[in-house]
Amino acid sequence: MKSLRRWWGPSHPAQLLLGLTLWSLWFVAIYAGLSVACALAPPGAGQGALTAINGGIALLTLATLALLAWLAWRGLCAGRQAAGGGRFIALVGAGLHVYAAAGVAFVAWPLVALPPCL
């Protein structure tokens, strides 16, 4: 448990991988969820982009965005206070979290425009 808490700290090298790992998990969840949802409960034709599937994707996206934004903010604060290697890891980690958040937003963007399952 103690080692797990250390991993979670803003200056641990694991932070360099965490943001984009969350991005990947989100990506896999969306892609797999979409395939399964379309196989199990395809939305009716003509519903356009306003389906339950799009709604679910949007919710998951917002939650991921919030988590990443918080992680980035935390890294930034920690980086300002730390020095040397800790500072480096926290700041680069924060940048990576910001990028991961931007990546989530950017990749999720087309779902506003597109009906699923085509």
């Binding site: 990506f27 950017f106 779902l111 699923p116 399952c117």
Partner: peptide, 14 residues
């Protein structure tokens, strides 16, 4: 599926 294509297209540009 088109939506998945849009995802991967966006990711490729990232």
């Amino acid at each position: 599926p088109q939506l998945a294509q849009a995802f991967f297209s966006a990711a490729s540009m990232l």
